[in-house]
């Protein structure tokens, strides 16, 4: 059948490749522009006609960011909060997922529904009572405030993701431990955790990304420059010197590195995490 349609067939193939290039331009040009602008001087960014490749390649924007202790502190804060939340979330979610995956108990169905529905609670709704709580417990502008609030948003996803993973593991493994007289606690740490590493990695990646990207709570629950995270830092940079576009782009590139690296190194885990919310 193919042979009779060779010209038509070839035309379709060519059209498809043209569409692919157009799609590529749509998807990647904005990012390319960010990258190339970060290596330009401020005057060159708005040169007419625009220069696609930096004419005078310069690292001055990166030097300005990396030489400024205030901005380095933003990065430290983002990494610190994201790591702390990831460790806590994965531990707590692992226990809950083990309960969901290996036991039948009263209220299991409704608890599961509760956790699924907490995924969709609007952050802005929780922001106002959180602000009230944070002020009255005097933890405004502290790491504690950020870590506790992020934990609430990461936990439901992490539980669903881990439960999904544990459900794929055969039950005979931990039942064998029970036959030998071991408790479920022993089974969890001796048998389940070692073979759950892929699930744990996917959950960690996803949790880390959620924290790294968070904006609204970091904006509201912190105040001093020494407590701000990268997304807020970028916004501050924009307010302070609205025309330092090359620095803003350099900071954006640096702020995107963790996600890009995780994606390139662990694409599989990344995708598993990012689509977790939708697969139930």
């Amino acid at each position: 059948m193919r042979k009779r349609h060779t010209t038509k067939d070839r035309l379709i193939t060519v059209a498809l490749h043209i569409a692919l290039v157009a799609g590529l331009f749509f998807a990647a040009f904005p990012i390319y522009w960010m990258l190339s602008s970060s290596f330009k001087s401020n005057t060159e960014i708005f040169a007419l006609p625009p220069t696609i490749l930096p004419k005078a390649f310069t690292l001055e924007a990166y030097a300005a960011i990396l030489g400024d202790p205030v901005k380095l502190r933003f990065f430290f804060n983002s990494y610190f909060v994201a790591f702390a939340v990831t460790v806590l979330t994965v531990l707590i979610a692992l226990l809950a997922a083990y309960g969901f995956s290996r036991f039948n108990f009263r209220g299991k169905g409704s608890l599961n529904t509760l956790i699924i529905s907490t995924q969709t609670i609007p952050p802005i709704t929780l922001l106002i009572p959180f602000f009230g709580l944070v002020v009255s417990y005097r933890i405004f502008d502290t790491y504690t405030a950020l870590i506790l609030t992020y934990l609430v948003f990461t936990l439901p996803y992490a539980i669903l993701l881990m439960t999904g993973y544990l459900n794929t593991l055969p039950r005979d493994l931990d039942e064998a431990v029970a036959v030998d007289g071991g408790t479920s606690w022993t089974a969890l740490w001796r048998v389940i955790v070692p073979i759950s590493l892929p699930g744990i990695v996917a959950t960690s990646v996803y949790t880390f990304l959620l924290c790294w990207n968070e904006f609204l709570f970091a904006l509201t629950l912190t105040k001093s420059a020494s407590m701000r995270t990268v997304p807020i830092g970028i916004q501050l940079l924009m307010g302070q010197h609205a025309f330092e576009w090359n620095q803003m782009m350099a900071m954006s590139v640096l702020g995107s590195l963790p996600l890009l690296l995780i994606y390139l190194i662990a694409q599989r885990f990344f995708l598993a995490g990012m689509t977790a919310g939708s697969v139930k």
């Binding site: 998807a27 904005p30 990012i31 960010m34 790294w212 990207n213 904006f215 997304p231 970028i234 916004q235 954006s252 702020g255 995107s256 996600l259 890009l260 994606y263 990012m274």
Partner: peptide, 8 residues
């Protein structure tokens, strides 16, 4: 586009 934070 998915790999970038809303702020960025």
């Amino acid at each position: 586009p998915w790999l970038f934070t809303a702020v960025i």
